[in-house]
């Protein structure tokens, strides 16, 4: 008796499970109401990431190709794994004649970056921030080493040098 009872009980639990899966299957056969899967490469154009999404570190530039980085190297110091290298030189200011730090290259190694966000937090001028791009696939590791300041860019007037 228990043998037949087991069979009935087993089929019952099987049908309970299948009623759930079947319900979802038929409910979403023609509409995508409950489907949360995104058809990624097809929706690439309308896909919008959240504002705080940490895709990569970028440097903000205005319309005159000017950034706010005064090469204070705070981000280079705080970075736990040395993903940021800052190349700078001292140039005499034409107005005051004092020597001033000028950013040459803000080199960012995306391949080493762990997105901890300490560099962005520590930046006194808010020169760098998060970019939402996540298409980082390349064939060559060296492509991920980026120079954040655009070629020919200069520092925005009015950004004070940090002591």
């Amino acid at each position: 008796m228990s043998y037949i009872g087991d069979i009935i009980n087993g089929s019952k639990t099987l049908l309970t499970g299948m009623s759930i899966t079947g319900n979802y299957f038929f409910k979403n056969l023609f509409t995508r109401k409950d489907v949360i899967t995104q058809l990624y490469p097809d929706n690439m154009n309308e896909l919008k990431m959240f504002d705080r999404f940490k895709g990569e570190v970028i440097m903000f530039h205005d319309e005159n190709n000017q950034h706010k980085c005064d090469a204070c190297t705070n981000c280079e110091i705080i970075c736990p794994n040395g993903s940021i290298e800052i190349v700078w030189e001292r140039v005499a200011d034409p107005e005051t004649g004092k020597n001033k730090k000028v950013l040459l290259n803000h080199i960012y190694h995306l391949e080493m970056c762990t997105m901890c966000g300490l560099c962005i937090e520590v930046c006194p001028a808010d020169a760098i921030g998060w970019g939402q791009d996540f298409h980082h696939v390349t064939r060559d590791r060296a492509d991920l080493t980026k120079v954040l300041n655009k070629p020919g860019s200069s520092i925005m007037p009015g950004v004070k040098e940090k002591k």
């Binding site: 990431m49 959240f50 705080r52 999404f53 940490k54 762990t114």
Partner: peptide, 12 residues
């Protein structure tokens, strides 16, 4: 998580 923390898994 992604909306508030900026990451889905390693929120930090």
């Amino acid at each position: 998580m992604e909306e508030t923390c900026g990451a889905r898994l390693t929120m930090n």
